[in-house]
Design a protein around this nucleic acid. Structure first.
Lengths: 95, 95
DNA sequence: AGGCTGGTTCGACGTGTGTCAACATGGACT
DNA sequence: AGTCCATGTTGACACACGTCGAACCAGCCT
């Protein structure tokens, strides 16, 4: 594994390396229709600005995409990135 | 996903959220026999104490186990933890 | 015993990260 | 227009993290 590959992949793992972000990500992923508005998932024990901050981090890492529809902002998971991470873990597991 | 579950899982993702650790982990996993001694994988661009520090972090996260055999210390991946992480990513990918 | 090589631990330094309160933005509704 | 509500942004602070050099431990070798 090259240094550049590691840099890219580590950014994704790092994005999930926080309990709050992991719960937010899981909440979006398991929500009906694969998308959720912020108001539905902001009960994770931290203040609302902190939720927004973490969602921004997840978006920067490429794990989520956001879209504004009227008053609310909806977040959706990016399946391709998820598959890449899963494959990265599956290879050593098979060996 | 509960707060306790997120805490545990986030520790594993966080452990892989560093390029150096990701390369070390990948090197151990892809090494012959599923195990590697530190001297075989310590060419990742950082000093040797730093390598030891990161290996300790991976061990604390439950991703690696270490065993001393004579002069050398061998590290090995923990397959069960790997499978748990993969499942955590596979569930949202399928939905 | 004494030295040599491989690994770990310690102490310290700079940087990054998570968190919040306060403020700004942007759309809906009257 | 003007107000309200849902989000995002900014600034600031404490804490954790990555990194290194130096000191320290654990086995082999002569």
């Amino acid at each position: 594994m090259s240094a550049a590959e590691a840099e890219t992949a580590a950014r994704m793992f790092k994005a999930l390396g926080d309990p709050v972000r992991l719960r937010l990500f899981s909440a979006v992923a398991s929500h009906e229709g694969g998308e959720a508005c912020v108001c539905d998932i902001s009960d994770v024990g931290v203040s609302q600005p902190t939720v927004s901050h973490h969602l921004k981090k997840l978006k920067e890492a490429g794990l989520l995409t956001s879209e504004r529809r009227g008053t609310w902002v909806y977040y959706r998971v990016e399946p391709s990135v998820l598959a890449a991470m899963g494959q990265l873990l599956a290879i050593p597991a098979a060996a």
